[in-house]
Design a protein around this nucleic acid. Structure first.
Lengths: 156, 156
DNA sequence: TGACAATAGGTGTTTAAACACGTATATTTC
DNA sequence: GAAATATACGTGTTTAAACACCTATTGTCA
């Protein structure tokens, strides 16, 4: 039996609105997961968003993606993708090249160094995910993931 | 039927690890909820963390709480509670007073202005929570909240 | 085709987050 | 009861987030 959220946060009384408790529960869980993820990534010099960018660009292959497309795919949107990519370019994790066909576009792609960093993280990150969710059961995870997707759905 | 996360993020293939999908689903949902919450709070000049502080201090009553206790109860821990409270003091939302019995302690309490801001937010915030989770069903919400609590539980 | 709007990207500036370190008061230990 | 440890809070500094604004290129359509 897990600790109810209002006890976890040392509040006097339980929440009177289930919707509010659910929101806070999501926010709290995400904050703890992110904090743990920061610890996994820190030795490799990456923030969660930078890691997210590398994963996106590895998935995109050699063609890479333009800035806005990267921004749109980020788990957590940020309002200054340019300088996020600037910093990663400085670290030689990604590269950029102006497109000839449409000179407004700058295609960003992952470098060999970026791929290498990701490769060294794949194991630890998988282990982190599995360990952190140990004991929850596949069916429950499926249900959790689906309910969250339903919650995000703007078509509701 | 909600959109699967890998489609939402325009990825080519579904996730091969359910644990990873669940983590990302939580992070994504929390980011979207926080973004929406920022919009609700912005007209009142508060960030989500500042709102969180006010809620904590309203719950604590006249006695107030010391800095570390506030930090510990925050939904999303921050590494500089001092200046977070400094800024809120500047806005006259909270007040601080050194404790006589233990002169290391500084008790922080909510001001009438802080209570007033909260009072004007109670309605809109409740409405936001209910609207945003409309159509999910109490049983599903209960289950979601409980599974997340189980996931956070360090005693697993 | 020429004006206007839309798209893609970048810059400047203010504010807050993050991290390491520092000071004062209480508590513990020998 | 003096020294060491722990607790509570604050400060300095670097870095990134946030917001508004700006330029260049392409697309639209009267």
């Amino acid at each position: 039996m897990p600790r109810p959220l209002h006890i976890e946060l040392k509040q006097n009384k339980p929440f009177d609105l289930l919707e509010e408790e659910t929101h806070l529960s999501i926010a709290r869980t995400a904050a703890l997961l992110e904090h743990a993820m920061v610890q996994v990534l820190k030795p490799h010099g990456l923030t969660p968003t930078q890691y997210n960018v590398l994963r996106i660009l590895r998935g995109a292959g050699d063609a890479g993606l333009c800035r806005n497309e990267i921004g749109a795919r980020l788990l957590r949107p940020v309002p200054d993708v340019t300088r996020l990519l600037d910093r990663m370019t400085d670290q030689k994790l990604i590269g950029r090249a102006r497109e000839d066909s449409d000179r407004r576009l700058v295609r960003t792609h992952i470098t060999p160094k970026g791929l290498d960093v990701l490769a060294r993280l794949d194991g630890p990150v998988r282990a982190f995910h599995k360990e952190r969710l140990r004991g929850i059961g596949q069916q429950k995870l499926r249900q959790l993931s689906d309910t969250l997707a339903e919650l995000r759905d703007p078509e509701k």
